[in-house]
Design a protein around this nucleic acid. Sequence first.
RNA 1: CGGGGCGUAGCGCAGCCUGGUAGCGUACUAGCAUGGGGUGCUAGGGGUCGUGGGUUCAAAUCCCGCCGCCCCGACCA
Length: 491
Amino acid sequence: MSKSLPKRSEDYSAWYNELVKRADLAENSAVRGCMVIKPYGFAIWEKMQQTLDRMFKETGHSNAYFPLFVPKSLFEAEEQNAEGFAKECAIVTHYRLKADPNKKGKLIVDPDAKLEEELIVRPTSEAIIWNTYKGWIQSYRDLPLLINQWANVVRWEMRTRLFLRTAEFLWQEGHTAHSTKDEAMEETTRMLDVYAEFAHDFLALPVIKGIKTANERFAGAEETFCIEAMMQDGKALQAGTSHFLGQNFAKAFDVKFADKNGGLEYVWGTSWGVSTRLMGALIMAHSDDNGLVLPPKLAPWQVVIVPVVFGNDNEALLNRCKELKSSLQKAGISVMLDDRDTQKPGWKFAEYELKGVPVRLAIGNRDLQNNSIELARRDTMEKSQVSLDGIEDYIKNLLDEIQTNIYQKALNFREKQTRKVDDYATFQRLLDEDPGFILAHWDGTPETEEKIKNETKATIRCIPLEREEEPGTCMVTGNPSAGRVLFARAY
RNA sequence: CGGGGCGUAGCGCAGCCUGGUAGCGUACUAGCAUGGGGUGCUAGGGGUCGUGGGUUCAAAUCCCGCCGCCCCGACCA
């Protein structure tokens, strides 16, 4: 294994793949398209989960769990949804294996064990959940119903990439039911805001909130809201979606409620989700050619202490490291003390840079005598000598500063790579030569959108929620446009 | 599903064209030295060369089939 990563500037894709593996986040498994998330990668995901879970609960949601399998008849009930996901479903057709009569020690699918009705491995859970909701909702008193589920789903993708697109992935999916359209719409945008806040405050990732065009809308939704982030190669990554489902699923699964006046009405629904894809976003947004750069709020270890040992007389030094560790922990900082004598300090430095630990403290006898420590920031790679007195407060502040700095860096990059363009030639040239977000006028038709996609591989990422009222003309057809929409090539 | 590539030691690869004792780097084990940025030297262990068949005195190498994976496209969170 070579010691250095591929360079972002030379091969962004190879850099990403290598980084994921070398930083011990995940690896490909024996199952096509499915990854193994390794302990270090999973620790980051757990931090995301904990934070999001808290935010969901603060906004009134409860967790529940629904089955992995969806009977085909339920799956097909909401036609748009079924059609949208049909071509990437895994299907269970049998429930038993038996010994192969022709090959000793091998198994075959028992043809006598065919299921009467096939089971779809959920690509998303609206069907099974709305079918369940039918039994839970009778009256306006049962509403709103605010449920979230942490689960795995399967989408049989043609081509997969660790975290960004895997055949099986982990996610959360919120599914809510409301008595009025306004309330459901309010919920949809509330959860979009939760996602945007999470991206901003924890992922240190600036995102653009917007509405998807009809082409890009979730199958079965009336309206899809999204947050879009920019990666360091200028490509867009959809980091989360929140769907206003209207009464589509209520009608498909016959979920009605008695209102205050004794009338019977269909329920209004929403669904919203983020996935392990956020890991991909986190990696691609901040990391550099030395490895991961993790925002302190999501780093499994915010600080790593590396003792720099000489000879055998290290007891005092190691004791001092342990004291330091516990005093930092008391200050609410998560700390890794790497006192292994099997690896050398230089090796550890490189290792923790690769793993993106925000702050590294190196401490040797020389430092002890000066009552100071060598501190290295991962985000800027700067090293400095810092006094051990008051080190806890110093590091707490520094972690905040790093969190902010990482965000600011990503924001600066996004702003630099976001341009307003008015003619199609410039649009095409920029996508090839200096990729990023492009704000351009579009005539609002699916045909023009499709044409642009076919010709440039760029899609409308969203119609930004916060956009200036700026009438103009479509860069392709010259027809009138109410305002600019956000274009980019996307993951 | 179309295009390209790869399957040889835990990992990364060479060897294949031109068939003849299976190699390198790294990791691993041991010893000695070293020790503030991926230590150095020495010795050692580890491989049915993806799989099935064929050609041949002889196959990692040539031929045919199969399987798997990766990358690029179309599709998609």
